[in-house]
Simulated assay, not measured.
Amino acid sequence: MSNELTDKAFWAGYWESKKDLAFNVPANYTFHKLLKNIIDTNKSASAIELGGFPGYFAIFLKKYFGLKTTLFDFYVHPKVLKEVLDANQLTDQDIAVIEGDLFKYQPETEYDLVLSCGLIEHFNDTKGIIEKHLSFLKPGGTLFITLPNFTGVNGWVQRNYDLNNYEKHNISSMDPALLAGYCKELGLKNVEAYYYGKFSVWLEDKANKPALAKAITKLVWVAGKVFTKIIPVESKLLSPYIVVTATK
């Protein structure tokens, strides 16, 4: 099996269309509190980011926690990678990089922490791609998976104003109960799966979207932010992400 909903041509075009990719990854980067808790609790020393090009989380874990990190992706754009590493005062000697197909690659190393952020929803076989994570994970190590939640307000925005991007995602995978069930079936322990984040919506390639789409997305974003500031809830309707954690 390979990447079923996208291919290398899609990812080449995706990354080449992106602007401002080379930025200094901050200490409060997305999911930083969750990752800090995992590292502090488990004394993690090594990590691999699967499907994470251009490697922001691998960079984050290297810069702020000193982990030995590796980036694995189906497609790696050398120029973009160098620019991102340069912006973070790192080189290809600091972050190991593997380009390959997860379903064909046989890991030579196991890691304390295996994470993917925005990967599993690009596959039709959700359980299969989760299982593939485990081949990289040490016994006792931690699995950390996040994916966007397109089953609520953010999904409505994607479906109506960025259908091409929406169709590159397996929406049925965006179910915490389903994900937790797969992890338990795979023999994982301490399984948690939940909606994460108060509220957010976004458009890919926003600069090239019609003015009306950008205006409506902005209006929805403001309304959602105001609502969740008054009533700070994490839910299927409003939260932008789903998080899954477990131990092997």
Rank of each mutant, 00 (worst) to 15 (best):
K198F: 13
R159T: 04
T151P: 00
Y196D: 14
W202V: 07
L143C: 07
L143T: 03
A177N: 14
E167F: 13
G197Y: 12
G141T: 00
N154Y: 09
V153N: 03
L163S: 13
Y166D: 09
L147Q: 09
L188C: 10
Y182F: 15
S173K: 09
W202P: 03
S200G: 13
N160M: 15
N165P: 03
V201P: 04
G181N: 14
K138W: 00
F144Y: 11
N190R: 10
Y196E: 15
F144G: 04
M174R: 08
H133C: 07
F136K: 01
N160V: 09
Q158L: 13
L163W: 10
Y194C: 10
L134H: 02
S172V: 11
D162G: 13
Y161G: 01
K184D: 05
E192Y: 10
I129Q: 03
H169P: 04
Q158M: 15
P148G: 04
G141M: 00
A180P: 11
V191H: 05
W156K: 12
G152S: 01
G187E: 07
T151I: 05
M174S: 04
F144M: 10
L179I: 11
M174D: 08
F144D: 02
F199P: 04
S200Q: 15
I130P: 00
N164Q: 11
L147W: 04
E167Y: 13
N165M: 13
P176E: 03
L188G: 03
H169T: 09
Y182P: 01
I130A: 04
G140V: 08
L147S: 04
K184W: 02
N154K: 02
N160Y: 12
S172L: 13
V157W: 05
G181Q: 13
Y196I: 03
E131S: 09
S135A: 14
L134M: 02
F136R: 00
E131W: 01
A177M: 11
F136I: 04
K138D: 00
A177I: 13
H133W: 07
G187M: 06
L179P: 05
C183R: 12
F136L: 06
V191N: 04
L134W: 01
V157T: 07
N160R: 13
Y182N: 02
T151W: 07
Y196W: 14
V201N: 07
F144L: 08
N149F: 02
R159Y: 14
L137D: 00
K138Q: 00
M174E: 12
P176W: 10
I171K: 09
N165Q: 15
E185M: 05
Y182E: 06
I171H: 06
L186H: 05
F136E: 01
L137N: 00
Y182C: 06
E167T: 14
L163E: 14
Q158H: 14
V191Y: 05
S172M: 13
G181P: 08
E185K: 05
N165E: 15
I145A: 05
P148Y: 07
K184S: 03
K138I: 01
E131H: 09
F150T: 01
K198E: 12
S200W: 10
G141V: 00
L186P: 01
Q158V: 05
Y194E: 10
L179S: 08
E131F: 02
S135V: 12
V153I: 15
G181S: 15
R159S: 11
L163Y: 13
Y166C: 06
K184A: 06
I130N: 03
L178V: 02
D175K: 05
K168L: 08
I129A: 06
V191Q: 05
A180R: 12
Y195N: 06
